[in-house]
Simulated scan of single mutants.
Amino acid sequence: MSSIPDTDLAPNQVTSRPAFPPLRSVVARALASLTTAVVAPTVLFAATLMTFDVMAAVTVALAWVVGATGWRWATGRPVSGLLMLTLGIMTIRTGFTLATGNTFVYFVQPVFADAAVAALFLGSLATARPLVARLAPDFYPVDAALAARPKIRRLFRRLTLLWGLVVVVKGSVTLWLLVSLSTVHYVLIQSSTIIALLLTATAATVALSAVVGRQEGMFRPTA
Rank of each mutant, 00 (worst) to 15 (best):
G88T: 12
L135G: 08
L82W: 00
A57V: 11
T97I: 11
M50C: 13
L161R: 13
R153S: 13
L83T: 10
A99L: 03
W71A: 15
R153C: 03
T86K: 08
R157E: 05
L122V: 09
G70A: 10
T97F: 10
I89L: 13
A126V: 12
A56D: 15
V108E: 04
L161T: 15
F104L: 15
A118T: 07
W73K: 11
V108A: 12
P137N: 03
F156A: 10
A147V: 07
G123T: 01
M90F: 14
P137D: 05
D138Q: 05
D143F: 05
R72W: 07
Y106C: 05
L146T: 14
F112S: 08
Y106D: 13
T160D: 00
Y140N: 07
T160W: 00
P78V: 03
L135W: 06
D53F: 12
Q109R: 14
A63E: 00
G81K: 01
P78G: 05
I92Q: 11
T97R: 04
F112A: 10
T91I: 06
G95Q: 00
A57Y: 06
R153V: 10
R154T: 14
V54M: 09
V60Q: 02
L131T: 04
V65S: 01
A56I: 12
P150Y: 08
A126F: 14
L98N: 02
Y106S: 11
L155F: 08
L98S: 01
T86H: 10
T103W: 11
L49H: 12
D143P: 07
A113D: 03
L120A: 06
T75L: 09
V117L: 15
L87W: 13
A61I: 06
T51L: 15
A61P: 15
P130L: 00
